[in-house]
Design a protein around this nucleic acid. Structure first.
Lengths: 200, 200, 200, 200
DNA sequence: CATGAATGAGCATTCATTCAT
DNA sequence: AATGAATGAATGCTCATTCAT
């Protein structure tokens, strides 16, 4: 079991790491940079609380993904139709960015940059693939239910995730970005791309 | 003027660097890894031919972007309408990926990961922003011409680029990806998202 | 505040650096040579305790200059006349060499050899100029007081400092040098060069 | 025998090396810096014409010392007394500086900084010691002739050389130095320091 | 728990020198 | 005679990690 202090320290380090990665990028987020931002006296403390750099990054991924899921899922489940669920997914994704820009920027960078010695992704593959599989399945169900047109659900899942990540990257480059516009346009785009063709 | 040998060596080093970055990621693409892949006797030879790591990366960006533009532009210009031009843009982008997967994966990683000490992007900002601005202007013209519906052109440009990059990331993760499906679906998606609403 | 251990290590490194510079010269006093002499496991430890090579050299300059000033100043202030003060200055300079040959040899080499990229001196200019200005002012006061003849005080200051450094260079080349003779002769020389001309 | 071209090239390289050392210091005077200043296409050319860095430095020492001796010696030999010879030595030394500042600054730096792996001086010891021995002998003769007072001739030789080098160092630090003042004062100083005591 | 000291591998870069042409 | 390409050792420095206290 983890002590109170330990939990607090880990949270503090995770927070400092997130900010450092968001600002300097994964490649420059060394333990010494993180320790400096967290006000720690030594990088040794990070190694003391985390088994290694990989575990620290894992913790960030887990935490941010958890917060994200807890925010998005209920807002999807409150909908009646698949189409509304999809709209809620897109909207809540952008809404989440508004409040958690730094966390998401860090998460995206970790997913893209953290690798094993052989170059294989350390976090990107598993986590992202799971989400992608779920969204693919969801889109497939929507098609079965007759709410979506006949697209390839896997490709559409990749597309929707890419659009979401694209907005996040734009937000990372420009923190003053007007997310309202992006949200509105993104919803319209996704609806147009997935809805059943109208009979004229 | 550059020697024949020099040109060859630079090309060889650029090629090895591209492969290394595509395989191991920017963060692990050290001079020694690149030299090993290129079969060079020492990292000193890379420093001999390039002013520094930044120049090597710059060269990669320039070269890949050049090849890309030379491939895509004529295929757009061969079209009569803005709508067809857009379709040609999407198609040629995916077609280019087929033949130059490694180069593009490396380019994407450099854009995302190469930073200055203060964390600001070294290549990403300028290059990507220029492309984005051009696409935004193009979409706006298409709207003026009455070929596209009334979306925010900047947001749509970000969206289209994100979709393109998303396919590339999927291809990076899975080299065996069936690009035919992605191309077909992506074109459909972009068309649905941009065409004028039908009157029923 | 600095730890006990840290202070000790810094002193140890400074000492090893001084010995290395005195023996091999500034140009060959690399971190690895210094680390070897200090019995350190790696050059990383030097970088851990000092911000960079410049800071290590700065520390040496500061330390040696401080010890030197603490030795010479009181012996000058114990004198009643400017002429006696000058004699005390020359004597205490040579006396200091006897006990701190290595430090002074290293200091002289750092002053002469440590440069910026553009070739401008890194430590030499400021420190030496300050001393020179003080000695110039002192000589001028002695002239006002009627104790010295009418020479150019700046030139005489340069001369006296050069004589001092010359003895040190001779001592550097031959550690067995008989400093007693040099001290006696140097005092005589400086007295003859500065005293008021006798009326005959 | 050396060809005409070879001789010219060597002279050109020596000249560029002198300028580089005078400006950047011995430690930063790399072959590439020298080649750049000489307008050579490659550092290989320096290695082609000189057996190694040491030989290049040797050549500089030899050349500058030769020019110096050719300038100073006749001006000393034109004098009738030892005292006048000494005065001529000091004057011609300073005069030589006026016209050959760069060469002398480089020479001084080579003497001080060029070392063997074990730290022993490469050029400084032999050359300087020979000059010193000659001056010592000269001063001794002057004493025998009753022209100088009874000082230690070796120490006085060191002192005179140090004064000369001191002026050169001052000139190195400030190219705009008024050498006229230095020459006048230096002559006065040396005369006062060496002449027979007056009877009153 | 936390600290600061230490380790040793790895980094990009510079260097004098060699060599084929 | 000259060139430019190549070599490999050495440089100062950063890094994640370990460990005694």
């Amino acid at each position: 079991m983890r002590t109170f202090t330990e939990t607090g320290r880990r949270a503090q380090i995770v927070q400092a790491a997130i900010e450092t990665i968001a600002e300097l990028g994964y490649g420059r987020a060394s333990f010494s940079q993180i320790a400096k931002r967290a006000g720690l006296s030594s990088t040794g403390l990070i190694s003391y609380h985390f088994a290694g750099k990989d575990e620290l990054m894992s913790e960030i991924v887990t935490e941010v993904m958890g917060t994200f899921t807890a925010f998005v899922l209920p807002r999807m489940q409150a909908q009646d139709t698949k189409a509304d669920e999809l709209r809620a997914f897109v909207e809540s994704n952008v809404d989440f960015m508004r409040a958690h820009r730094t966390q998401l920027v860090a998460l995206l960078d970790i997913m893209a940059s953290a690798r094993r010695d052989d170059g294989s992704p350390l976090h990107g593959a598993g986590v992202a693939e799971a989400d992608l599989a779920k969204l693919t399945e969801f889109l497939h169900e929507g098609q079965q239910a007759g709410e979506f047109r006949q697209f390839d659900p896997r490709v559409m899942a990749v597309a929707i995730m890419s659009l979401r990540d694209g907005v996040l990257r734009a937000l990372a480059a420009d923190p003053g970005l007007d997310l309202d516009v992006y949200e509105r346009e993104l919803v319209a785009l996704v609806v147009l791309a997935t809805r059943k063709e109208l009979q004229c």
